[in-house]
């Protein structure tokens, strides 16, 4: 028999961040995602739960995998999906975010999946419209579904989250993935260590409950999970960043470092990877890498989020 479903019910029609969720609410999403995992392997890869609903991908920032994942998730729930990208739209003509959203909502949209370069944009959106708003990444703030799929993948491999030691390595200061992971992991009882150069991993993060470390070799043997963040090449030219070669030498995850990690350490990466920079091909494609499973699990997690928010909004 399946694990007993959590007692908590999901009552939020928006998913804006993980910071405001309880551990139980995160548990409901992960448990629900478990039920959606098999849909992708069946004869008919669709369930009728969102039939007649319209999901719009409102993306103000480039994205391939997150948008594709949300599109596929919505389609597997039998929803209709529209893509809206900011380029060449009325946004370029000076329309405000609220007006754009209200116009889209006026066409009869039920769920808006929003990515925006400004932190807090989905929160603002949720106050402008009556439909559900799902945050698909806002500025340096949060990327809740990425953290949820990371949690789901960790739970799948380790059987639990509580008590695990998780390292998040890279440009933490600019990473919404790091922030969402910090909230999700600490709420579920894991211990998070941010690792990277001082310019990218400031001590400020200690006040949010993370441990901060600037020397990966000193601590690599402690971790059950190592999550390598992508080095955003557009930031490399700025003065906060050492040279790429220096970063790779000091923090890159390679076979040599892996030999000093726990034998059952789980390696993750939110993608897209810079092979040879933050992670070598040997490690990325190695036996301890869960990178492609993260992508697969992302689908189940996003199906769960779309389903739960739609149910909370009254089905």
């Amino acid at each position: 028999m399946a694990a007993p479903a959590a007692e908590t019910t999901w009552t939020r029609k928006h998913l804006l961040d993980l910071e405001s969720l309880s551990a139980d609410e995160i548990g409901v999403i992960l448990d629900t995602a478990e039920a959606f995992k098999d849909v992708s392997t069946r004869s008919v890869k669709k369930v009728p739960a969102l039939r007649g609903r319209v999901v719009v991908n409102l993306f103000f920032e480039e994205s391939t995998r997150t948008r594709t994942s949300f599109t596929l998730a919505a389609q597997r729930l039998s929803a209709d999906v529209i893509d809206f990208s900011a380029k060449g739209s009325s946004v370029a003509k000076g329309e405000t975010l609220g007006d754009t959203a209200r116009n889209i909502e006026a066409m009869g949209v039920d769920l808006i999946v929003c990515r925006h370069p400004a932190s807090g944009a989905p929160h603002l959106l949720s106050r402008c419209v009556n439909c559900c708003v799902i945050n698909a990444g806002d500025g340096r703030h949060e990327h809740p579904t990425q953290a949820l799929l990371d949690l789901f993948t960790i739970r799948q491999h380790k059987g639990r989250i509580e008590g695990l030691k998780v390292a998040i390595v890279g440009d933490v200061a600019n990473s919404r993935v790091a922030r969402s992971n910090l909230w999700g992991l600490t709420k579920l009882g894991a211990e998070v260590t941010f690792v990277g150069p001082t310019t990218l991993v400031p001590r400020t993060f200690e006040q949010f409950g993370a441990r901060v470390c600037h020397d990966i070799d000193a601590v690599i043997g402690e971790f059950d999970v190592i999550n390598m963040l992508r080095i955003q090449m557009e930031r490399v030219t700025s003065n906060v960043f050492p040279s790429v070669q220096e970063y790779t030498r000091l923090f890159g995850l390679n076979g040599q470092r892996m030999r000093r990690a726990k034998p059952d350490v789980l390696v993750m990466h939110p993608g897209p990877m810079n092979r040879g920079i933050e992670i070598t091909t040997e490690v990325a494609d190695g036996a301890r890498s869960a990178i492609l499973q993260q992508v697969t699990n992302g689908l189940a997690v996003r199906m769960a989020v779309l389903f739960l928010c739609n149910q909370a909004a009254g089905g």
Binding site: A5, T9, W10, T11, F36, A49, Q311, G314, G315
Partner: peptide, 13 residues
Amino acid sequence: LAEIGPAAQVRRT
């Protein structure tokens, strides 16, 4: 499903 709302609990098939 619309009538059940948030009380709908999805379990594994």
